[in-house]
Each structure stands twice: as C-alpha cells, then as structure tokens.
Design a protein around this nucleic acid. Structure first.
Length: 419
DNA sequence: TCTGGGGTCCTAGGACCC
DNA sequence: TCTGGGGTCCTAGGACCC
C-alpha cells in the first residue's frame, strides 16, 4: 500500500505554528518580492482569494477581510518541512519526498485496522511535534493514494484526516466523487479535451479505451489510467537526487546594465553550486536565461537562454560563476529593461566520479575552498563569504515587507515567551 | 509601480551516422 | 514517374506537478 501525506495549506500553517493567535483567521503567504499569493489558509480560501492572485490587486480585499499577509519565509518552511519528513521517515524504509510538503510512503502492513491506526498515529504525531496539520491518504497505488488524500482533506472531521481506499466499492465511489480537472496528472489541457467527450470524473476516465488514452494523452496518460484502476504502475522514487537545479529570480526593478544583471547571475550560479554540493553532484552543463517583463506589453520584449556545455564537470561556485557570466555576455542585448534572470545547472554526475582530462580540468584547489566556504556560511550565516563579483557594495533587496522571523533557523529570531 | 520559483517526463523532428 | 532503411543523439517545446 502507498500512503500520501500532504501538509494542509503548508506555508500558511507554518506561519500559524508560531502565531497561534491566527488560528481560525485568514492567512495568505506571498511569493518572492511580495508578488502573488502562493498559499492560503482555509479561511482565506473561503474569503475568495484565488491561488496566484496578484497581491497589489487584492490589497483592498485583504484589508476588508482582515487577511493576515506574510512574505514568503523559505528558511522557516524548509526547516519545518525537514521536521515533518523526519517524523514520516520513521514509518517506512521507502519514502519519496515529492515536494516541500508532500511525501509518498510504501507501507507493508495491509490490514485496514492497522493501516488506519498507522495513519492516525502519523497525523497526531506530526501535528503534535511540529504544529503542522497533515492529511493522509492510503491506497494500493500512488494515484489512488492521491485521491484518498483529497478525500481526507475535504472531509477532515468525518475521516480524522485519514482516508483509505481498500476495496473496489470504495475505489469506484472515490473516483466518481473526483472531478476530472482535480485528478493528479490531468491539467487544464487534458481536462478540457476529456470534458469534450463527456468524461467528467476520474471514474469515467478509467473506463476509456486504452488506445484513445495513448493516442491523446501519450504513455503518461495511460500509466495514470492504470494506476487509477488499481494496477500499480507508478513506482516510488526513493533516490532523491535532483536532475536539474535552478536559481532564478524576478528583480525588484528593471535592470538595463549588463553589470547589474551580471552581478545577479553570479549570485545565482554560486547558489546553484551550493545546492549541487549539498547533493554531492557536479554538473556538465549550465543554462543562463534573461527576459524582460512580459506584463509590460508597451515595452520592447526580449527573452533568450543559452546552454553551455562545460569543458569539465564541476560544482565550484567560482567556476560556475565564470561560465555563467560568459554565457550571459553572449545573450545580453543593451537597450532592454530586464526583469528576470536565472541559472540552471544540468547533466549531473556524482562528485566522486569526475574524470580527469588531459588538459582542461576543474581547479582542484576549489574543492577544499568550497568545503571551507560551506562550513563558514553554515556556521555564521548564509553569504557571509562571497565572491567579489557578487553583489558587494551594491544593495539589491527583495521586497519582503511582511516577513515573519526565522523562528527555527536563527538564534536572534527565536521565539520569546513571557510567563 | 506591482504579477513566483522551483521541478518532472515525454515527444517530435532535425542532424548525423552507416 | 521513380530517390532506402535503418540507427543514435540532441533539442525545443509541451504537459504536468507543487
């Protein structure tokens, strides 16, 4: 059996852990630069705040409904996520961390009573130990576990946040309940096409002809169909290492100078290198992209990316920054107002399998250097040690007007209790 | 004024090989 | 009139996820 554990309204719930006065009140969390809504408490959903709402368009509405608005605090969410995952990992040897707030677990014990007890135990333990509420769905396949989780979340009281699909009747009833656009793996495009042929819920989807599904939704759609029928098709991925790593940002204002964008791209490359080292990989290729603000149709638009194959695999921030800035110079065109840039590293190999070449090699001195930088930054705070080509002397600042303290990751921000 | 930042997998088509 | 039949690798783009 597979379990899918999903934190309820994760970012909003994290904010509430340290602000219990906000329980029962509408809470939203904004994206970087306080741009748009990326998480909502149930109360905020009930007020009619849509996902992705542009913050500046909803200011009035927030004030009217007394919505508590937070800037994204990823230091807090990342740390809370780790705590939740640590607890969940005790229930199984096979776990897939699917996203910051979701994990699939393979559970061995198949009797309903013990599975239900197991789910309830998880739910209680995670809520009690971290303060984050979760929902648990358990079923014979991953796609069905997703469905079960939706039901657990929708009917929290009746299910005690745990729902199990363990019979054919339950499977069919659950699938009939789930509208087609809410099925995991069916997005807007496919939902539209399916509705056009009168497939309106997950159950009707499973009745479709294999050939039709394959033709219209490719192998991915067919696998999903089988998984929903209860035939285990999608397997759990316990490996965990990422295949691409990206650091990309919108700027708080438009940049017109190469030097300004270059500074940021350097920082993004250094950040990618850190993430690479954390998963003990080196990359063989790097992509840099820049683009202007697509929301400003009156301004001339420009958008380009460039992929550079590296002469050697590396995870040195210095080397990646050099390759990235060189790549940027190739695609940068003066005269445009740039709003966003990013660095993506690709084509990984484990760092201990890097082949030495005859001429071009990563500078071996960088390995101990990077190790030292990682230790210093871990001890004294992020970005304490930086490259000179990073934003020294100049200030760029994300708009974060409503940032909560880093309660769990910074001693200065630790919570004060007045007794 | 203002509109996020990550990821995955698959497919078709082009370039190139014999 | 008529112009093969395999391969591989790479890339761009689409569709989806959180």
């Amino acid at each position: 059996m597979f379990a899918l554990i999903d934190c309820n309204n994760f970012y909003a719930s994290c904010e509430r852990v340290f602000r219990p006065d906000l329980i029962g009140k509408p809470v939203v969390v904004l994206s970087n630069n306080d741009g748009c809504v990326i998480a909502r408490s149930n109360e905020a959903k009930a007020c009619g705040v849509p996902m992705g709402a542009a913050a500046f368009e909803f200011e009035k509405m927030f004030a009217q409904h007394k919505v508590n608005v937070f800037s994204a605090n990823f230091a807090l969410y990342g740390d809370m996520s780790q705590r939740v995952m640590n607890i969940l990992s005790e229930y199984t040897d096979e776990m897939e961390i699917y996203s910051i707030d979701e994990a699939f677990l393979k559970l061995d014990d198949c009797s309903y009573k013990s599975l239900k007890a197991c789910g309830v135990d998880m739910q209680r333990k995670v809520t009690k130990w971290t303060g984050v509420p979760i929902s648990v769905g358990i079923a014979p396949t991953k796609a069905l576990a997703k469905v079960a989780n939706k039901i657990a979340k929708k009917y929290q009281k009746r299910t005690s946040n745990v729902f199990i699909i363990n019979s054919e009747e339950r499977r069919i009833k659950s699938l009939k309940w789930l509208t087609i656009e809410d099925v995991w793996g069916i997005g807007r495009k496919h939902a539209k096409r399916l509705k056009a042929i009168n497939v309106n819920n997950a159950y009707e989807f499973t009745l479709l002809d294999d050939q039709w599904v394959k033709r219209n939704m490719a192998i991915v759609g067919l696998r999903l169909k089988h998984d929903l029928m209860g035939i285990p098709t999608l397997d759990i991925d316990t490996f965990g290492a990422k295949k691409n790593i990206a650091t990309t940002r919108s700027f708080e204002r438009n940049y017109t100078e190469l030097s300004e964008v270059s500074e940021r791209v350097t920082t993004f490359a250094v950040s990618c290198a850190e993430k690479l080292r954390r998963q003990k990989s080196c990359c063989n290729a790097i992509m840099v992209f820049i683009h202007t603000n697509g929301h400003r149709a009156e301004l001339p638009q420009y958008s380009r990316n460039i992929v550079v194959k590296l002469p050697f695999a590396t995870n040195s921030g210095i080397e990646l920054a050099q390759f990235a800035t060189k790549a940027l110079e190739k695609i940068f065109k003066p005269g445009y107002h740039y709003k966003k840039a990013g660095v993506i590293v690709m084509d990984f190999i484990p760092e201990n399998t890097v082949q030495l070449k005859m001429f071009d090699n990563s500078n071996p001195k960088h390995i101990p250097l990077m190790k030292s930088i990682d230790i210093i930054n871990a001890t004294y705070g992020q970005q304490k040690v930086r490259l000179a080509s990073q934003d020294m002397g100049r200030v760029w600042k994300m708009k974060q007007e409503r940032l909560s303290p880093r309660y769990t990751t910074n001693l200065d921000d630790i919570i004060m209790v007045n007794a």
